[in-house]
Amino acid sequence: MTVTASLISFLIAISLLTVTPGLDTALVLRTAATEGPGNALRAALGINVGCLMWGAAVAFGAGELLAASELAYTALKWAGAAYLCWLGAQMLLRPRTGFELDAKPGGKDGARRNAAQNRMPGAAGVPGGRTRWFLRGLLSNLLNPKVGVFYISFLPQFVPAGEPVVPYTFGLSAIHVAVGVVWCGSLILATRPLGHLLRLPRVVKALDRITGAVFIGFGIKLALSRR
Rank of each mutant, 00 (worst) to 15 (best):
G106K: 10
L66H: 02
R130S: 15
V203R: 05
G50R: 08
F170K: 02
H196I: 11
R113I: 01
A72V: 06
F154V: 01
F215I: 00
G185R: 03
L45K: 10
F218N: 00
A206T: 13
R96G: 12
G212K: 02
L207C: 12
P164I: 06
V177Y: 05
L41C: 11
N141F: 06
F134D: 00
G219W: 07
S140D: 11
L138Y: 10
R94G: 10
T2N: 15
T31E: 08
E64S: 13
E64A: 14
R136M: 15
D109C: 02
L194Q: 02
L65K: 03
Q157R: 03
A81I: 04
C184G: 13
Y168Q: 06
V159H: 03
K146P: 03
D24A: 14
P127Q: 09
L23C: 09
A44Y: 07
L135E: 09
G88M: 01
L207Q: 02
L66V: 06
T31S: 11
G185F: 05
G36V: 08
K205G: 15
L139P: 00
G36Y: 12
N39F: 04
I210H: 00
N39I: 02
L224I: 11
I216R: 03
A13G: 13
P121F: 03
Q157P: 01
R132E: 14
V28R: 04
V28F: 06
V214Y: 00
G122M: 05
L16Y: 04
A161S: 13
A178R: 09
A124V: 12
Q117E: 12
A5N: 12
P160G: 05
G148F: 05
R226G: 15
V203Q: 09
T20P: 02
G46W: 00
N118K: 15
A79G: 10
R112P: 05
I47F: 05
S153L: 08
L66A: 04
V179L: 12
L207P: 02
T34Q: 14
A111V: 10
G38P: 02
I47D: 00
I220W: 10
L27K: 00
L143S: 07
A56C: 11
W133Y: 15
L189D: 02
I14C: 09
L45G: 14
F134S: 05
I14E: 00
L200W: 12
G195D: 07
